[in-house]
Amino acid sequence: MIWKELNESLIITNLKANDYTDVMKELGSVMIQEGYAKDSYIDALIEREQEYPTGLDIDGVGVAIPHTAVSHVKKHGIAIAVLDKPVTFFQMGTDDETVEVQVIFMLAVINANEHLDQLQTILKIIQDKNVLSDLMKTKDTKQIIKIIKDKECTL
């Protein structure tokens, strides 16, 4: 159950960002402050996003799952942000298709195999555009956890 592991201090609602680098800086800083990532994490996120984008177009709703190599990570965690307005990400697997993203699931991954169930659960959650729409509407971190919990209980 990933909702039980979600840490409210890693959730930001109404995040103001002009572009995806702002998202990496703001949410990445939270990961660093809370002890999940090293200082190199933000630059690594941005570099990685440029080369291997993580935007996903879920049936017309945008979400992104930025992450880095394990060397920039201290412990496993998930940070979530809902942006006050969408920013442009490139779509995963492309270098020319964009998607407007308002929901971010930032991953600090140490060992994907150990956390495979969790990663798969996150994907199932973000593959539901109704969940993404609900997340976009809320400004309350507790509500975000509840939306994810409710979805998780249906899986």
């Binding site: 990685r48 080369e51 291997y52 799952i65 992450h67 880095t68 190599a69 394990v70 995963m92 991953l107 991954v109 994907a112 195999n113 495979l116 990663l119 798969q120 994907l123």
Partner: peptide, 10 residues
């Protein structure tokens, strides 16, 4: 994948 971390594991 880019880093052999998350998406390729899935």
């Amino acid at each position: 994948c880019g880093g052999a971390v998350a998406t390729s594991t899935i």
